[in-house]
């Protein structure tokens, strides 16, 4: 029983990371109807920025915040400079652009920081841990839940958050009330970039940092977004925690650790076949 509880809680901790990535994917999906395959690599690069700053002697949380700012700014720049030009491009072209971004960022990181696996510091004091969860896992749950809460409050209660929701839903009507839709999209990319950075920085002490660290996590995040509902941010976040728990329990009791990643793929396929809108999503009906 104790082992089960341990696996369950540790799954929730990992789930926080998947939830953050899923939320970042959904933020961009809602505005553009595209999945940003480079989301994980953007986060990985921000984590490297944090690592470089820590190694240069910055206090952990200062490095953390600067890395978030880096993730935000690069997100905005990628949207403004690259994605903007493909606004009316066919879906496949956009997919190729995203894949291109993935490989460019990945190679850039390998070139700048090498492909060597490195340890990444955790800011949480070891005394925080208990017999079920390590200190980092507990801190990670706190940070990811705090992130989700902040994002929720931002979208729900601020005029800017409202304008971003409006711009994603109905760009034409948004322009008619004076919202600068282009900037709202860029801002969405920025927020997604910062959220992805948090996920990567929290994951790095567990999976260690290297340019490919986010490949599996992005897959889980994608499974989480689909499971919860790709058009429902809070469903996607909930999906993250569910996927985290399923992954850990399946790994411990069913398929073993070697096949853990295929659990994500199985979830993706089962959701797409049985309930494409996800658990909490809705199907968009169009009158014809």
């Amino acid at each position: 029983m104790e082992a089960f509880l341990h696996q369950f809680l540790s799954g929730l901790a990992n789930g926080g990371i998947y939830a953050s990535i899923a939320l970042a994917l959904v933020m961009i999906y809602q505005a553009t109807h595209h999945i940003n395959f480079a989301q994980g690599e953007q986060g990985m690069f921000s984590a490297y920025v944090a690592l470089v700053l820590v190694q240069a002697g910055f206090p952990y949380w200062a490095a953390f915040l600067l890395a978030l700012a880096f993730g935000f700014v690069t997100g905005v720049i990628i949207e403004r400079v690259i994605i903007r030009r493909f606004e009316h491009a066919p879906v496949l072209s956009v997919v190729v652009v995203f894949l291109g971004l993935l490989f460019i960022i990945n190679s850039l990181a390998g070139w700048l920081f090498t492909y060597n696996v490195q340890a990444f510091p955790s800011p949480f004091p070891p005394g925080l841990g208990n017999r079920f969860l390590s200190a980092h896992e507990i801190g990670m749950i706190g940070v990811t839940l705090g992130t989700l809460l902040l994002i929720y409050l931002f979208f729900r209660f601020t005029p800017l958050g409202l304008a971003m929701r409006a711009a994603a839903q109905n760009p034409d009507a948004s322009r008619l009330v004076g919202i600068r839709v282009g900037w709202m999209l860029a801002l969405g990319w920025g927020l997604a970039g910062a959220t992805g950075a948090i996920a990567a920085i929290m994951a790095a002490p567990i999976v260690y940092i290297e340019p490919n660290m986010m490949a599996g996590i992005l897959l889980y995040g994608f499974a989480a977004a689909l499971l919860g509902g790709i058009n429902n941010p809070w469903g996607a976040a909930a999906g993250g925690f569910i996927v985290g728990v399923i992954e850990n329990l399946a790994g411990a009791y069913v398929v073993g650790t070697e096949l853990k990643l295929s659990v994500a793929l199985v979830i993706i396929i089962v959701v797409l076949v049985t309930r494409p809108a996800g658990l909490f999503g809705y199907t968009i009906m169009t009158r014809v």
């Binding site: 005029p159 409006a166 009330v177």
Partner: peptide
């Protein structure tokens, strides 16, 4: 202020949020 054809309603937002958007600027 333009009331467009199709009304330009933000259908997933509340009535109050729609009105707040009218005063966005």
């Amino acid at each position: 202020a333009h009331v467009p054809d199709g009304r330009g309603t933000f259908v997933h937002l509340t009535v109050e949020e729609n009105l707040a958007l009218g005063a966005y600027t």
